[in-house]
Amino acid sequence: MASEQHDTARVYRGAARTGRGRARRVVTLFVLLSLSGACAQDPRKQTRQELQTLSSWAATLHLLGEAWLERSVPSRYAQQTLHEARQTLQEEAQTIRQSSSIPADARAALIGHAQQLDRLAGGLSEEVQTGDPTDTPQVLTQVAQEQQALADLARGVGAR
């Protein structure tokens, strides 16, 4: 058993020595790829990513609003999720504003949608807080309009 252990250790050491140079090249390649990836974002890809995030949260707002109207989810959960949605949408607006790789016209449109969705989430949040769903269907209609607008924009940039 002891000699087997010794042999195993020797094999590992040998493999480590010959593999060290190759490993160093692979690590260097990863670092270079990472840096190039970080520096040169494809404008269409980034626009698509931001659109997907906004569309995802718009759909979440819609489903959550419907579920809350049906009393399928508790108000505490709805309130917390709306808080998360607003926080994410505000962060997204900030990210889009600071992004130099998204074309200016697309940037303005995306920021507008993020802000509008944030406002609608705020409206829903107030209704959940007061427990009065009177205006909720109207807010949900507006959310659906936003979803449609985002889908149209996505088709424009060739997203799925």
């Binding site: 997907q52 995030t53 569309s55 995802s56 949260w57 718009a58 759909a59 979440t60 819609h62 489903l63 959550l64 579920a67 049906e70 009393r71 399928s72 989810v73 508790p74 959960y77 917390q80 999720t81 998360e84 994410t88 979803q147």
Partner: peptide, 25 residues
Amino acid sequence: PRGIQVDHYSQLGLILRDAFGAWGF
């Protein structure tokens, strides 16, 4: 079909709503 990606855990709370309504949550 709704275009919801799971970006946050809170979204998981809605995953069984279509199947079980209020029980789903």
